[in-house]
Design a protein around this nucleic acid. Structure first.
Lengths: 239, 239
DNA sequence: TTTTCGTGCTCTGCATGCAATTGATGCCAA
DNA sequence: TTGGCATCAATTGCATGCAGAGCACGAAAA
């Protein structure tokens, strides 16, 4: 008689982890990391909550192995706090951490803008102009959602135009945490007019090939965003 | 009769993974990552070589699970290249990647120096001066090894004095790859005198609280190091 | 009443088993 | 010979089992 051959079928997929039919079929750990990143950023998994491997893996419809790999990735990104022999937790975002975070982003984007000002291609510059125009349109129409999406695309495009992979990766790694802060501040339209004007100035500096100027302007812009956000968080915490 | 109860003892520890009796006993994945990082940086695991899970885990005396976790970490650091359903490989370090790498490090250290110039404490400044003196002594004595160690300590200390965790983490992440480049260039004493002088100027700027100056000087210094290293790599490749 | 120790339970950390993917090899037909 | 196809072996990816760490709860001692 054969040894029992239980079908060790993979767990049923839950709603939390759908195929999405993306291009290159990545491993479950990768998908899980992305999904969890989203859940943490959007606040479904609230800061400080424990991430119990068994529960989470069941919820995602995967086993603990790829889940653990995903959690380790998120720990590197600073979204999750790993404690030896204890459940990992969603990292808390302290006020001073937000300050540091935007300082770091400002530093990276400054360098990126400087490089981009000398390396950007015509096509990219054209695209940047188009994004700026679109963003201004959404600003005029007071469409906060699309405005934000465009805003982020612009920042990402500038970083991409720097053609420096480590810089871009560092930027990406900080992005999720910045997004959390943004969501928590809520009253994101505080600095709206100012921000749009700053973006226009940044674009002008890049167009002019003024590396130092573009860097300084973008750095300041990010800095302003950071302090405005911090104020928003404080107001939000007070309420 | 009972089902066979093989003792599922952990594999015998190999020479490659010794306890080291460090402070907080971290998990095997963490130790493995550190060990592998070292092996890759020092060149024992040469660029491009395949990292077969079974072999490596046997060599390290651990099972595949923590090893896989370690490999994922190293992939994030850019030391290892992960390919779906294929053996991971030790990442190759292309010339243009080195350029980008030092550009990124220069950007981060510039920001760090600017922050450090305003945030450094007396004690830290004292320590920085002491490191500089020691380093100059090793330079005078032509002790390359100790000189290098001090050099790195100085850079690390400046970054630490910026009191910005994300910036420091980004710096750490790039460090291993820079170290690989350094080792491969070999003729590291090319720019030796110049480098020591630059360090002195950087220290002076920080002492003077000249943030912009310190940033510019450190950024240039790293840039110079990068180009010198690149030249060294080219010479080395030609031979 | 407070402290200490023990007991049990839950959860992580690690090892290992099974299946699916991939590259290699050999065979056959054109 | 060369192109296409089936098969095989190697290796990853994932699931799961087992042991031990840590916490909660409660009983016993001070």
């Amino acid at each position: 008689m054969d040894p029992v051959r239980r079908p060790r079928g993979r767990p049923r997929k839950s709603v939390l982890l759908e195929p999405a039919a993306l291009g290159p079929r990545r491993g479950l750990h990768d998908q899980a990391a992305e999904r969890l990143r989203g859940l943490i950023v959007e606040g479904t998994l609230s800061a400080g909550s424990a991430l119990v491997e068994t529960e989470l893996s069941a919820a995602l419809g995967i086993s603990r192995t790829p889940l653990r790999e995903a959690l380790k990735l998120l720990a590197v990104e600073g979204l999750v706090e790993l404690r030896p022999n204890r459940s990992p937790r969603v990292a808390e975002l302290q006020a001073d951490a937000v300050t540091e975070l935007f300082e770091a982003i400002a530093a990276i984007e400054r360098a990126a803008a400087e490089l981009a000002a000398t390396r950007i291609t015509h096509a990219e510059l054209e695209r940047l102009r188009r994004l700026q125009t679109e963003m201004e349109a959404h600003h005029a129409a007071r469409d906060l959602g699309p405005y934000f999406a465009l805003n982020q695309q612009i920042h990402a495009l500038i970083v991409a135009c720097a053609r420096n992979t480590p810089l871009r990766e560092a930027h990406d790694a900080l992005h999720a945490r910045a997004e959390i802060a943004r969501r928590r501040a809520l009253d994101s339209r505080a600095r709206w007019d100012e921000s749009v004007a700053e973006h226009r100035a940044i674009l002008a500096a890049i167009e002019a090939g003024d590396a130092a100027g573009a860097g300084r302007l973008l750095s300041d812009h990010v800095g302003h965003t950071g302090t405005a956000l911090l104020a928003g968080l404080a107001r939000h915490a007070a309420a």
